[in-house]
Amino acid sequence: MKKTLVLFAHPRFEDSRANATLIDRLFSKSHITLHDLYETYPDFHINVRKEQKLLEEHDIIIWHHPLYWYSSPAILKQWMDMVLEFNWAYGPEGNMLQGKTVFNVITTGGSREVYCSQGYNSYTINEFLRPFEQTANLCGMHYLPPFAVMGTHKLSEEQLLDYANQYENLIDLLKGDFDATGLSNCFFLNDLELIKNPNS
């Protein structure tokens, strides 16, 4: 069974309805390590060795965070800056992340419609996430399209629960001997029928 590491970054988790619902399901699962970055490193003093060891122990890495100003909250950038070291994650001898799967799970206040060339945000979510995609590429990881929960301000409880179920489906699917490369061909992982309605 593949092991999944959720790197969760929310500076104000106590007031986030959407993320509370999404995360809630993950606590009970044994193959998932939920790693709360803001709670572990309130002073941003990241323990690099510990983080690298965590990465080594897992096959699937999830960057789970709200999208702030078209990017991640500050601590996730700090985490990347510090943990993804030269000759460990990348560089001539940096192969520790080779072959692992990685993707973003994001929540946005704005709806899907505003994230396109005609919308007021001009670019798609996938375009905004390019830095993450390229980071994964440079480290030899397999990058998947994001799982995106959008327009959170207007989502009802039921809609949020639906998303939580899909997130759970996705994570359960990935733990098995499943070829994740097949998932690359979409905008969002939660667009796939496989994730939306696994039983159909």
Partner: peptide, 13 residues
């Protein structure tokens, strides 16, 4: 009110 999604949601409502 930094990063307070609920606060934004309420004012939008």
């Amino acid at each position: 009110k930094h990063w307070d999604g609920e606060h934004i949601r309420k004012s939008l409502e």
